[in-house]
Design a protein around this nucleic acid. Sequence first.
DNA 1: ACCATAATCAAACAGACGTTTGAATGAAGC
DNA 2: GCTTCATTCAAACGTCTGTTTGATTATGGT
Lengths: 214, 214
Amino acid sequence: METDTQQRLLDAAEALFAEQGFAETSLRAITARAQANLAAINYHFGSKDALVRAVFSRRLRPLSEERLSRLAALNAGGQPVAVEAVLDAFIEPSLRLRREGPHGEPFTRLLGRAQIEGSESLREFLRDCYAPVLEQFQRTLGRILPRLRPEELRWRLHFTLGVLSFTYAGARLPQVPFAVRVAGDEEWLLRQLIQFLAAGLRAPPLMERVETAV
Amino acid sequence: METDTQQRLLDAAEALFAEQGFAETSLRAITARAQANLAAINYHFGSKDALVRAVFSRRLRPLSEERLSRLAALNAGGQPVAVEAVLDAFIEPSLRLRREGPHGEPFTRLLGRAQIEGSESLREFLRDCYAPVLEQFQRTLGRILPRLRPEELRWRLHFTLGVLSFTYAGARLPQVPFAVRVAGDEEWLLRQLIQFLAAGLRAPPLMERVETAV
DNA sequence: ACCATAATCAAACAGACGTTTGAATGAAGC
DNA sequence: GCTTCATTCAAACGTCTGTTTGATTATGGT
């Protein structure tokens, strides 16, 4: 099977990128882990950059779809939508991806890293992937929190993404080793995230929104 | 003057690390920007890793001192301390560092990146730098928010660091270019950060703390 | 059986990397 | 004026990087 090698390369790259970073991971390390020939990456993907994008595409596409469908289900249901529900629609799919299968955790770690690390072209690529999803979530949150000016809402969305990226990237609190590791505690982590972020999003605006129409 | 070259090397490294990342920045790029010889880095600092640590040490030490003295001033004053004041004591010094001088912004960008990117040894080094500061802030916040279990407080501190790292690292919201750039808007950004984070920290606990003594 | 296409492989490519060397240069001590 | 020490410099070191090549093997179609 031809695609078998591709999958092994993607898995190996995903794991190594998450552990060491993009620049620090060599094609030789990837092919060694995947038990493939060095030339296999350039044969199947064309270049290292293209491999990086392929690693993201494989899992980001279904993730975005599920986030959007969850949000759509929320908006289609009974009118009043809670901030917590919107956050759950955004966060839970990624945390479930993390829980499912051995590849989930490396990928979410990777997802966090890529937001900060990564080349300019990769960030552009990710921006294009994320854009439609974030746009929808911003629209819904703007409707739920009408007192917030778009400017403030955008900052708070930015902060929200920061919390998620940082947490997914696995950065630990210095000197404070978590007794309870994340493995198996995704449910607890999800509720902590929602509790914290919902309160932040709902904080009173610094600058009250001027009503355009009464 | 001998130290002049060292300063130029530190400045150049700081700027380039912040722009491109650690692994992506070569010693040749640094020495070229600093108008120094390639061998100067190994002569003055010993190795690239040591240079990275020196870049952080130079600014992290006074930053930590100011954060701690601000916190001490809060605790020494009138008893009731607001969460907002604690956050201000932690955040404002770094934002002021950002505003002051041309080197401030690259360094804070760098500070954000290092939490996620960076080698294991660098993370250890940063952990040792941050540890005493975070310990004190955690202690004070634990006193202010007595309903929070230490476990939950640690998570919320983690989230707080995530927001700061992400914001400092300069990661932008996809597809949502900020009309108001950060330059000159540190005051506005500071208030937004405090507003968001204070609400998150003050959110009701998921698990009420069991009173050890009435 | 044969061909055509796809995949794998060992080997080599040129270039960039961090680091080291040994000579050249400069300024202070006496 | 001579010595001493710290600094700078050009050049080279060996190693690792991503990519390419051309031959070799396996696969599926007719």
